[in-house]
């Protein structure tokens, strides 16, 4: 009880007090609005839908297969298939809602989606004044361009583009193979 422990402890706090003026390592707080924010490349928050080209609805990759709706643990995704004028089902969601207040950003929908159409956004400033209009993201709010995707997640975007290109090439090969095989079978007849 003879006070040495306490004095040693006081020395440590003194070192930190003067250290915080000197070394960056001892002063780690970042003043948020002015200073930088430390968003990493992989950080994820609320999902968004990717579209290629200019027109959001036409270039949408999502084909409304509703896999993500089934796999989402808190079930916060709601999809309705689109119908053209004659009532034939289209490979596109008319309504694609995500309830941002329920979504916990677990990225399962991204893993389940076979068409690389839904990815996680890293924008975290989502506060709104109204819980219902503000946080119910409808299709227009969710659709973001591929360039935006390349801006926030360069590596992931590049990887998904390669996979899509790969799939495209395989499809073309199959196409060519089928055409070749059809043309081969054609002459015998």
């Amino acid at each position: 009880m003879n006070g040495q422990g306490i004095l040693k402890g006081m020395l440590v706090t003194a070192k930190n007090f003067f250290g915080s003026y000197v070394s960056r390592e001892r002063l780690t707080t970042v003043s948020y609005p002015e200073g930088g924010n430390t968003i990493k490349e992989q950080s994820r928050n609320i999902p968004f839908l990717v579209f290629d080209g200019e027109d959001p609805v036409a270039g949408m990759r999502c084909t409304a297969c509703q896999k993500c709706e089934k796999a989402c643990p808190p079930q916060c995704i709601f999809i309705e298939k689109d119908k053209d004028e004659r009532g034939k089902a289209l490979q596109r969601p008319k309504v694609f809602d995500i309830d941002a207040s329920v979504c916990m950003g677990c990225q399962i929908c991204v893993e389940v989606c076979p068409f690389e159409s839904i990815w996680m956004d890293s924008n975290f400033e989502l506060s709104t004044f109204n819980r219902f209009e503000g946080l119910q993201f409808n299709r227009e709010k969710l659709l973001k361009s591929n360039t935006y995707f390349h801006k926030i997640h360069p590596q992931q975007a590049q990887a998904s583009d390669d996979r899509l290109a790969e799939k495209e090439r395989k499809r073309l090969e199959r196409e060519a193979a089928r055409r070749a095989e059809k043309s081969a079978s054609e002459p015998q007849v």
Partner: peptide, 28 residues
């Protein structure tokens, strides 16, 4: 004071988690 020293070190590890998994605490 001791708590904030601990949190200062924890921040470095949480940055590593965010870099690897995308989220600081709910990494999944």
């Amino acid at each position: 004071t001791p708590l904030l020293y601990a949190l200062r070190e924890r921040e470095k590890i949480l940055d590593l988690f965010e870099w690897a998994s995308g989220a600081r605490m709910m990494c999944n």
